[in-house]
Amino acid sequence: MRAPEGEKLLWVALDNGIYIPHLCGLREAERPAASCRLCFVEVEGLPNPVTACTLPVSEGMLVHTRTPRVDRLVRTGFELLLSNHRLRCGKCEKNKNCELQKIARERGLKLRLSRLRPLISEVPVDESPKTFKYDPGRCVLCGRCVWVDHHQAKVGAIGFIRRGISRKIAAFGDVPLAESRCTECGECVKVCPVGALAFKEK
């Protein structure tokens, strides 16, 4: 397999039709966030599984995308995200177009909680923008919307607030998006891998 020097493994694999689960990765970002912790692979010569989004490819690198250790980490990471995700796929705008569904399909994982406790707090959906809505209960905190807002749209309407389990994406002061400096350019909605940011149906 050929790849440009220094390219991260995740993108090389995807370009060559090899699927590796991922949510937070953005090819354009200079520094990978490495926060969703789903793109684990095992590389021969490295003792532990590593994230593919942070690993530059090198000559002769031998990678296993499916091993018992990788599958176990991906399963746990995925279940942890589900435990904090409002699962009502039938009522979600992104149904059948959702990265979580894709990961479940590709890796044979169930879209419901079995081992873990649900950790969802009922938070209201922000319906204030004219063209889209924001549902924090569906957000997986991948941060792609924040990155495009800051680096491509260059609006700076949203960012991460609070920490730990309370961490969320919000406008400055946690005001509704319509009251923020959001221009409703829609760039953030386009990159959301799940149903947290979704265009309103016309």
Partner: peptide, 8 residues
């Protein structure tokens, strides 16, 4: 709260 494993 940045990464999945630690946060959740």
């Amino acid at each position: 709260g940045k990464c999945t494993f630690c946060r959740l």
